[in-house]
């Protein structure tokens, strides 16, 4: 009884420290590179451009070496690969490899792999969608350090201007006169005011540059418009997205089945939130419709009603 109580209390206190997330931007891909079966994990960076972490486990065969290179999945950038990087082989597990690649832009990528082993050389390409997901706030320690440096730079700049006005044009020897000292103080005051103004404007520019960069880079899902047609057809239309529009040449706009389904649809009755449906039996893909993507869902809805 005492042990059980301790166990439950332990669980109670551990809960706040536990983490979990729903939906992962990471790519998990199992495929054949010639005779080698590989399980590949690509952890894309939260901000693009950034560095993706790549792990490969060879599930069969004896793999000695893997080289990786990033290419566009389609279009002009899919032809010329940069020189590949060699993955690091784990000394503890010789069939486990780690590496990293720079993803310089959001869009559809492929990680091209060259695999060397006992059964010869083989190739494989892993599709990787990459998009900037979040920006970072400044850590307190960095903020404190930068604030301290800023204060030092500002005060020393004021002192330098003061010395420049007070003494720099004097002949060597002798102390500055009262009028020169006054001039130095006036220049220091003006410099301080100017620097405050510059810092204020700089801060505005920083905010504008940061938000502009975030707006340009951060992934924004296109709006989905849902309508019911003929009582039994749910039409979903993907609306305009400036994020997608800016990257037309870089994005694969084909929908790839996820374990056999083109779409996973979740329906929740609001506001009561008392019904939840996940119909997956059949969807019809109709392709592009006047620049938008529409998905027709028919029979499932009949089943729901």
């Amino acid at each position: 009884m005492k042990r059980a109580l301790l166990f439950f209390m332990g669980c109670f206190f551990l809960v706040p420290t536990c983490g979990a997330h729903v939906g992962s931007p990471d790519v998990f891909y199992e495929g054949m590179a010639g005779p080698y079966r590989l399980f590949v994990t690509v952890r894309t960076p939260p901000m693009i451009p950034g560095i993706a972490q790549i792990e490969v486990r060879a599930l069969n065969g004896s793999v000695a070496d893997i080289w990786i290179a990033p290419l566009r999945a389609m279009g002009e950038g899919s032809e010329n690969a940069p020189p590949p990087d060699r993955m690091e082989r784990s000394p503890a597990d010789t069939q486990f490899f780690t590496g990293k690649l720079w993803l310089m832009a959001s869009g559809s990528w492929q990680v091209r792999m060259e695999v060397f082993g006992a059964q010869g050389k083989a190739q494989m390409a892993v599709p990787v969608p990459a998009a900037a997901r979040r920006t970072l706030t400044m850590p307190k320690s960095t903020g404190t350090l930068l604030a301290a440096l800023m204060i030092l730079l500002v005060t020393s700049m004021i002192a330098i201007f003061g010395a420049a006005a007070r003494e720099s044009q004097m002949e060597p020897g002798g102390a500055p006169s009262a009028s020169l000292r006054r001039r130095g103080r006036v220049v220091m005051a003006v410099t301080a005011a100017a620097l405050i103004g510059i810092l204020f404007l700089g801060n505005m520019w920083w905010d504008a540059a940061a938000s502009g960069r975030a707006n340009l880079m951060m992934y924004k899902a296109p709006p989905i418009e849902a309508s019911l047609q003929n009582g039994n057809t749910l039409v979903l239309k993907m609306g305009f997205s400036s994020w997608h529009d800016r990257r037309k040449q870089m994005l694969l706009d084909k929908i790839i089945p996820d374990h056999g389904h083109l779409m996973h649809l979740f329906l929740i009755r609001v506001p009561d939130l008392d019904r939840f449906y996940h119909p997956t039996s059949r969807q019809e893909w109709c392709g592009h419709l006047r620049g938008t993507i529409a998905l027709y869902v028919r029979r499932e809805l009949c089943a729901l009603r």
Binding site: I48, P49, I51, M138, T142, L146, M217
Partner: peptide
């Protein structure tokens, strides 16, 4: 450090 943070926050 400013550039390092900027790269982490907004990309390289």
């Amino acid at each position: 450090p400013f550039d390092d943070w900027w790269h982490n926050a907004f990309g390289l």
